[in-house]
Design a protein around this nucleic acid. Structure first.
Length: 465
RNA sequence: GGGUCUGUGGGCUAGCUUGGUAUACUUGCGGCUUUGGGAGCCGCUGACUCCGGUUCAAAUCCGGACAGACCCA
């Protein structure tokens, strides 16, 4: 099952063994969130809510269905989604005159309403978000959390008076991103997507990519600047201080359950998941080590420690199942619990608890008197270690190349003249996807990897997941 | 988009070539026993993806649907 020699198999195996999702639901790409997986997702969602709320976004919830007439207002957008939307064509026994789209994303649901909501410059900026499921008829191979047909995601949509204000929103989104990612311990790169790969209807798209152990990049989210591309067809205007009516400038931002997929892929090992403490449903598992005659005393002590940790807001769980300790260790390791505490007579006699870290395997003892600060400190060390380690891998995955001979299975960095022709040729001939050009400019002097012309542009590419 | 393969208790699997009685392990449940890295024993529950065809008889052969795995574009 090795993670490094067969990532794909390892991933599926881990998802099943850790019981994150049940793939047996009889529709391709629509899996059941089981309690453990859903708890993780919920903690991720909580983090997202917290950061968006803190930056003045308001949560809303729009209907799932969109009338065909609204859906078709922005031409590029339809072209991009036409082949992958689900349609509702009937209601009861009646065929509908206006068919309904099951949202693949919510621009076309929200923007007719934005047009009503925004009237004055004082209504701006409008910053809203929702956490919902969306549907896309994915024809490629599906995979839990990574390629699904029912997508659980957050989408934030903003309207601004000027392009500059919208650009500042993109910058704010990046700050939000950093705060979320340091909790999830997921590294990422920011790439401005190529013209042919940007979001349908966008002015530009920033793709957020995380390297998987097989060298491929997983897109975990995106930020789009729309300019007035949607506000014109949807007629979203405001009356400015000068009395003129102007179209708003818009942005969107979204990330999905791929964050869970990324956490699995980035952190897991051959023993199972390793969950970042901030989103682990069980942060600390307590295993009592019983033997004849002392069971009562050990259980009593273990329960007291569980109580103390829980009272301090730490998600602790005492495992009292009638299993042998070794068996419990394996179980919780598969499930990725970041910290394990063991309590036996030996520990009680020494007034300590034994701990074992999931990320490093390191073992030691904590004084029973300092159990809360001790556990909090170790959890934070684990989080930090996981984040640092992940960033190191993300950076090491990038290889600079200057010719198309012997391209390694990594993320490639090279010169690109920027022409669509060279871009397509590079993708087609090497079976790679251009991730784009760095959002944060990198100094570069060299030649286009395809045509050889001198260029100061640098591009990245990898095989996609 | 094109192709290859697969579908048997909750999980994994034998049986399919050559049609007739469905196997092991595991999980689950009950009991005994044990506990510092996957203990052991006894008992029990539980399955041939669906629809159609061939046949006296289909898990097995044929067709289709659905679902899954992989490869290529």
């Amino acid at each position: 099952m090795g993670k490094d020699d067969n990532f794909s198999e390892w991933y599926n195996d881990i998802v099943e063994k850790a019981n994150l999702s049940d793939k047996r639901y009889p529709i391709k790409g629509m899996n059941v969130w089981t309690p453990y997986g859903w708890k993780i997702m919920r903690y991720v969602d909580d983090l997202i809510r917290k950061e968006l709320d803190a930056t003045g976004h308001d949560e809303v919830c729009f209907p799932l269905m969109i009338p065909e007439t609204e859906f078709k207002k922005e031409k590029e957008h339809i072209k991009g989604f036409d082949s992958e939307v689900y349609w509702v064509t009937h209601a009861g026994l009646n065929e509908l005159d206006v068919r309904l789209v099951i949202r693949p994303t919510s621009e076309t649901a929200m923007y007719p309403m934005f047009s009503l909501w925004v009237r004055s410059h004082t209504d701006l900026p409008l910053k809203i978000y929702q956490l919902v499921n969306t549907f896309r008829y994915e024809t490629k191979q599906t995979r839990s959390f990574i390629r699904v047909r029912e997508i659980h995601f957050f989408e934030s949509h903003t309207c601004h008076a000027t392009e500059k204000d919208a650009q500042e929103q993109v910058e704010e989104d990046l700050v939000i991103l950093e705060k979320i990612m340091e909790r999830l311990c997921i590294p990422y790169s920011l790439m401005v997507r190529t013209e042919w790969d940007k979001f349908p209807g966008a002015y530009y798209t920033v793709g957020l990519d995380t390297a998987m152990p097989n060298g491929r990049m997983l897109q975990i989210g995106s930020i789009h600047h729309y300019r007035t591309n949607f506000s014109i067809p949807y007629n979203i205007t405001y009356e400015d201080t000068d009395g003129e009516h102007k179209n708003v400038h818009q942005t969107t931002y979204g990330m999905s359950e791929r964050l869970v997929g990324a956490m699995i892929g980035v952190h897991g090992d051959d023993k199972g998941l390793i969950l970042p403490p901030p989103v682990a449903p069980v942060q600390v598992v307590i295993i009592p080590i019983l033997s004849k005659g002392n069971a009562d005393a050990v259980i009593k002590k273990a329960a007291a420690i569980e109580r103390t940790l829980k009272d301090s807001g730490i998600r602790a769980k005492l495992d009292l199942r009638d299993e042998r300790p070794g068996s419990k260790f394996f179980d919780w390791e598969i499930k990725g619990v970041p910290l394990r505490l063991e309590i036996g007579m030996r520990d009680i006699d020494n007034n300590v608890v034994t701990f074992a870290r999931r990320d490093s395997g390191e073992k030691g003892t904590i004084s029973s008197d300092d159990i809360v600060p001790g556990v909090e400190m170790i959890l934070e060390l684990i989080r930090k270690n996981m984040y640092d380690k992940a960033w190191k891998i993300q950076k090491e995955n990038v290889v600079s190349v200057d010719s198309v001979k012997d391209l390694p299975e990594r993320t490639l960095r090279f010169g690109w003249c920027g022409s669509e022709e060279c871009g397509h040729r590079f993708e087609d001939e090497n079976d790679l996807k251009l991730l784009g050009t760095p959002y944060i400019k990198e100094g570069f002097e060299g030649k286009c990897i395809v045509c050889g012309r001198h260029t100061d542009k640098v591009a990245y590419a990898s095989r996609s997941m």
